[in-house]
């Protein structure tokens, strides 16, 4: 049984069809990176997995439970799925420690002592135990994102979703977040990661999925997708992302004045 099984997934926002038939599965312990241009539907795909977006049609199973079933207890399924957002979304009125304990207490009904113990372990895990008493606004973006990861891990998820976790960060803060994610991958966490960090995808992912126009264009081991992409669209995308300084005026249709 795969951890995530997606079949025939369609999602429209009004007249705009963002996902046009996605079939994708993620095995337990696998790290899958989804890459592709803006507007290709990567984030929407990720947000359908825990039903932050309601699919228009298709089925999604997470650890055997069909989340698209109207009778599914989605709150129960979400407890097992950690999610990390581009904008961190830490709770601004709570300290770092409270951010990590509140769902443990209110959702998992853990005792205060137990929740504190788990929070301490996970804040140490992301190297921020010394910031436990701080408020999110007092932290850098990279630190906030590491707290967000600790907050998700505190629920003991069997799967982690990352929605462009480093896209809102200053360049020098990207590394600290990727380091934590790499550590998680090495520990065998199942991860579905939407990212623009090609180096991370190449080094850490077991499989890379390239999406464009609401469909999966191609997927495979990073060495294949990056080394010898089969599809023209993949080649164009990788060229522009990996060698942005070498994009020529010709290919973008610049017309010079006489």
């Amino acid at each position: 049984m795969s951890t995530i099984e997606i079949s025939g997934l369609h999602k429209s926002f009004g007249a705009l069809e963002v996902l046009r038939g996605i079939d994708l599965s993620v095995e337990a312990g696998e790290v899958v990176c989804v890459i592709g241009p803006s507007g290709s539907g990567k984030s929407t795909l990720l947000r359908c997995v825990n039903l932050l977006e309601e699919p228009t049609s298709g089925t999604i199973r997470v650890a055997g439970t069909e989340v698209t079933d109207p009778d599914c207890d989605i709150d129960a399924v979400r407890r097992g799925i950690g999610m990390v957002f581009q904008q961190f979304n830490l709770f601004g009125h709570l300290t770092v420690r409270e951010n990590v304990t509140i769902a443990q207490r209110r959702v998992l009904r853990r005792s205060r002592a137990e929740a504190e113990r788990v929070a301490t372990a996970n804040l140490s895990r992301v190297g921020l135990l010394d910031k436990a008493g701080a408020y999110p606004a007092q932290l850098s973006g990279g630190q906030q994102q590491r707290v967000a990861i600790a907050r998700a891990l505190a629920m003991d998820p069997q799967l982690m979703l990352f929605d462009e976790p480093t896209s809102a960060l200053d360049p020098e803060l990207v590394g600290e977040v990727l380091a934590v994610m790499r550590g998680l991958a090495a520990e065998g966490m199942t991860m579905l990661v939407v990212t623009h960090e090609m180096a991370f995808a190449r080094e850490v992912a077991h499989r890379v999925v390239f999406m464009d126009g609401g469909v999966v264009v191609e997927q495979g081991p990073p060495a294949e997708v990056f080394g010898s992409p089969r599809e023209e669209r993949t080649r164009t995308f990788l060229h522009r992302v990996l060698e942005p300084a070498r994009v020529s005026e010709n290919e973008i249709g610049v017309q010079r004045k006489e």
């Binding site: 709150d75 407890r79 999610m83 957002f85 979304n89 629920m155």
Partner: peptide, 15 residues
């Protein structure tokens, strides 16, 4: 209150 706050809370399994 930013929409992400509700999403983060729901993602953690809160009703």
């Amino acid at each position: 209150v930013p929409k992400g706050q509700l999403e983060a809370a729901r993602t953690l399994g809160m009703s």
